[in-house]
Nucleic acid binder design. Structure first.
Lengths: 232, 232
DNA sequence: ACTGCAAACTGGTCTGACCAAGAAGTGAAA
DNA sequence: TTTCACTTCTTGGTCAGACCAGTTTGCAGT
């Protein structure tokens, strides 16, 4: 896409990444830059504005634009600045609702179609989760939870469910993680029900009781959603 | 930071997150927007540019700016054009199973959250389907069916369900259509149950009976799946 | 050396214009 | 009637020049 402001944006980024512009350094003013590069200030504004949106520089009206610490942008925690879709409570609720649907179906078909090897692997993973217990960070817990559910999805032997689960968990991990941190902030710890719910899902799949598995997996997610609603 | 373009950016995001602007919808042109909001086009450009940078909309010079589907960029299922995955009976069965899940949930949330206008539109569409009756080609029937279910999905006010439905129905239309033709070939005509099932879905949503709607929509699809299984 | 204030910056917004790419309407040719 | 090329309209991209509102700078007066 040979569009001027994008070109300039790339050019500026290279200056940043190559170290020509160190953290704390000042950028040229927009006017000077537009003269030097023979483009209009609008174009410069667009590029510098993107730079700021991506967290590389700090713009202050009246003041000069400075390069931020380069590591900062990569530490943008969930619940960070500005509005992001993943931080929107309404969207987080929708993510939970879709998880309830998706994981319910995955558990259902996993109960019906999982191979014995997959069942054994699932059992092993479950016991490890029990052992690790509370000794983990919130982030590790979130990842562990997703891995467990992803194993169930794979055991469903259902191409569409597997694909969608993969897509969903990676794309919306932030929203999922955001829910977990909010829950922990409110209750101080992992809610009591979770452990029992994981157990119920595990049991139902091991017994190849598809209906029970669907109910348990779905209930597991909706339980969290109810917690979230009370909070508001 | 009460700066104009940021305010507008937040405002646009609200429209996105609230579902007022659905995936695929077109934004107003920058000129019209600047007139309507009494700000300059520069300001509008800045806001819309940020929206694009964050991946929410797609801007095309000369064309219109439209809302991106949340899932589209990551929806790379192995349907490599080639040997028509859509003709594979096993895959057709999986598509039906996912439809059962998806349309069940869509009907559920539509019952809870549809606006009165949406309910009226749905009612109108349903009555038209009744009138048109058997006077249509198989292809027209399939499209009609999908339109009906897409209206239900949109009435759910559920960004994820809407996004997924859009993608699903367009990508896998072949598989869906294939199922319909196979059914017709076997039975010579539209199975009797279908009409009653559509009626049940329609009724349940009109009564805002969410559980019944989910059951009816899900059953509607699984009914077809059972037909397909007998055949093999 | 210190203080105050005005001038000279900075980025934010506005206006109105022109360009280029896509969309839409039109009319002639098949 | 359908199809296809051409014209026209609309859209986003860029430009120039102006004004506003904060910030910084620098000089004059103490």
């Amino acid at each position: 896409m040979p569009n001027l402001s994008d070109e300039l944006l790339q050019q500026l980024k290279e200056s940043l990444f190559s170290g020509a512009l160190l953290p704390g350094a000042e950028l040229q003013s927009q006017r000077r830059m537009s003269e030097g590069l023979a483009v209009s200030r609008s174009t410069v504004r667009e590029a510098v504005g993107q730079l700021e949106a991506e967290g590389y520089v700090e713009i202050r009206q009246g003041g000069k634009t400075r390069v931020k610490n380069l590591l900062e942008p990569h530490f943008n925690l969930p619940l960070g600045e500005g509005k992001a879709l993943g931080d929107n409570p309404e969207f987080q609720r929708q993510v939970l609702e879709v998880r309830a649907m998706l994981e319910g179906e995955a558990a259902y078909y996993a109960s019906l179609r999982a191979s014995d090897e997959q069942l054994a692997a699932l059992d092993k993973e479950y016991r490890q989760m029990l052992q690790r217990g509370q000794r983990e960070t919130t982030l590790a817990k979130a990842k562990e939870d997703l891995r467990f559910h992803m194993m169930i999805a794979e055991s469903s032997h259902h191409l569409l469910i597997i694909s969608f689960s993969q897509l969903f968990y990676t794309r919306f991990f932030n929203a999922i993680y955001g829910v977990l941190t909010r829950t922990l902030k409110t209750y101080g710890r992992y809610p009591e029900g979770i452990r029992a719910q994981h157990s119920a899902i595990h049991q139902a799949i091991m017994n190849r009781d598809a209906e029970a598995a669907r109910r348990a997996a779905s209930e597991h997610i909706l339980y969290t959603r109810r917690h979230l609603e009370k909070e508001c």
